[in-house]
Design a protein around this nucleic acid. Structure first.
Lengths: 343, 343
DNA sequence: CTGTTAGCGCCTTCAT
DNA sequence: ATGAAGGCGCTAACAG
């Protein structure tokens, strides 16, 4: 299929018998131009339906006004919200956005970066894949002075700005809540240990425990690979424990939902037999039965803040020195956990 | 923030004392080149970490190898799946993708098209916003010979390829199923009447009814604007009906979930008091209590097919004549509807 | 085999 | 107030 022809400045110029530079000036609303010629040009441009060729423009001024975004997957509600926030904010500031998914693969992540860099994006917003455990590709971006920020799934050592949630705080909130409802044997079900959030949420979990004079117990920490099968196995193993924990805090909602489903099918009553809590506040967690106690993370807000900061840096409004923005989470108590005792 | 400098062919050329064209040829693996010089160039390019400037390349060959995608919202599971399918397939065929959301606004849709066209995308994949009820912007694309396809939310009159689900068939499937479970007073809750899917699903609903000798009844058709408030109101109105319908078929899952929530809070038993069915098979519909009978639409598949067809057209593999691809849906019977009678 | 030349569409001095 | 010329990085004839 052949692509349709686009009107260029040259054609407007020929039609009007003026030079291309005059067209360029008119379309930029340059002051040093006869108002009448300007008017004529603008009119003609509209009539011919002229659309500037961003490619040429970008090549010339070596700025594309395009940002690259890499998320593990676009389909999850959380990352979808982030992307949404990024899009809206970027657009409102005159930037376009190219979105890529790493599909949780570090190789894909590298490929995405390469492709976006080749596309000459002015900056990047990256949330790391689950697989990402070495960071040469990011240091390379850094060395090449390509501006980028990390959000949600970050690495702490890379000297760029990072936008994260207070994962420690969120995990602390929910664990403390479980403690307040009277539970003591509280289990933490974690994803792979090298994941940033696995570590951070464990930290919050332990902090809350220690406030109640409790320490880490090996059999109250379980690890899953976060696949559906892995989650089901974890749920079954917990159900088979003797004694069972009084409450289980799952690192992310989808994991908690898997656990909930398995337990219900086994006839385990939630929260009577075991309290269950998640993290993220996916839409799903509100509609399962019983609704899931969880921690809400405003993804749209995170996306918004991430671009804002990056664009501020690009525009020179913000300093290039990396900063760390930490967003607070909110506990969302629902019916999957035992109620608070009356005072 | 200043952007880091990118290595260009010119610099490699200077370093090696050859001309730029030689570099270009070497990097394209041209056969008419001394193997030794080629080797040296490729090596040096790697050493200097050369990345081609896609902008310049695209400007030159007037093809960007990027596609534009416009969806009403990226955050919905269905459109997220479509976008995912589009991304993966496009990438595997060497194309990049720029994604935009219209946020269900026709003005935003127009702005998105303009921006993508300015970015010189080779083609577009569009799913129309809910607001879109006139189509000049699409006819303009057509007139300018910019290749595009419509998917899911399409307009039937525009002479381009369309990828849709068999909405009539899906609605027929679910309505027939409700009839088979013994229900006769079956209500159809629809979105705005000018929506393509509102019409199509109504058609399937009516077709199934007529097979059972039933006709359209005004009080068994209800319209909502699909906002949460509108849906709640619809649910309340249905609950207040006397007599109530035996079954309700909601045009989309989120609407059905809203209805389900309202009814549960009113103490209405599903499916004992009323059967309830949706359409789309969102993840949510599987986890609500009771799980929702619905119709599944493979979004990833739709995205995949849409790009494949567009790229085939771009590559000249497929004819430019518009075709219509219709994907079949699958009935997903769950517990929100009465069981089928034993034979 | 390799270099020279021209040009994709646009912007920006430098002239006039 | 306008035009001419040069160049962004790259490719593709056209020469040799």
């Amino acid at each position: 299929m052949k692509k349709g022809h686009q009107v260029t400045m040259k054609e407007i110029a020929k039609k009007l018998g003026v030079s291309v530079s005059t067209i360029s000036r008119a379309l930029q609303d340059s002051p040093e131009l006869h108002p009448e010629t300007k008017r004529k040009i603008v009119e003609m441009a509209k009539e011919m339906n002229y659309q500037p060729n961003l490619l040429a423009q970008s090549l010339r001024i070596s700025r594309t006004k395009t940002l690259g975004v890499i998320v593990p997957e676009i389909i999850s509600h959380f990352f979808g919200s982030c992307v949404s926030g990024i899009q809206d904010t970027a657009n409102s500031r005159g930037y376009n956005v190219m979105i890529c998914q790493s599909n949780e693969s570090i190789e894909q992540e590298k490929a995405n970066i390469k492709s976006l860099v080749s596309s000459q994006v002015d900056g990047l917003l990256i949330s790391l894949s689950r697989e990402t455990n070495h960071y040469e590709h990011l240091y390379e971006l850094y060395d090449r002075e390509i501006p980028f920020v990390l959000f949600d799934r970050v690495n702490e050592d890379i000297p760029v700005s990072k936008i994260t949630f207070n994962d420690v705080g969120g995990a602390y909130q929910v664990t403390k809540y479980l403690l307040e409802t009277g539970c003591r044997r509280i289990m933490y079900v974690s994803g792979p240990e090298d994941l940033y959030i696995s570590k951070k949420r464990k930290e919050g979990y332990l902090r809350a425990l220690s406030e109640y004079g409790l320490g880490e117990e090996a059999d109250l920490i379980k690890i899953t690979d976060l696949t559906h099968e892995g989650n089901v196995r974890a749920a079954e193993e917990i159900a088979a424990m003797n004694p069972r924990p009084e409450a289980v805090f799952c690192m992310i909602d989808p994991l908690a939902v898997d656990v909930l489903t398995v337990w219900k099918s086994m006839g385990i009553k939630i929260p009577e037999d075991i309290s269950l809590a998640g993290f993220t506040n996916n839409p799903t967690s509100a509609v399962v039965e019983p609704p899931l106690t969880t921690v809400s993370q405003p993804g749209y807000e995170m996306g918004k803040l991430s671009v804002s900061h990056l664009l501020d840096q690009l525009d020179g409004v913000a300093s290039d020195d990396p900063i760390s923005i930490v967003l607070e989470t909110t506990l969302v108590p629902r019916k999957s956990t035992k109620p608070l005792p009356l005072k």
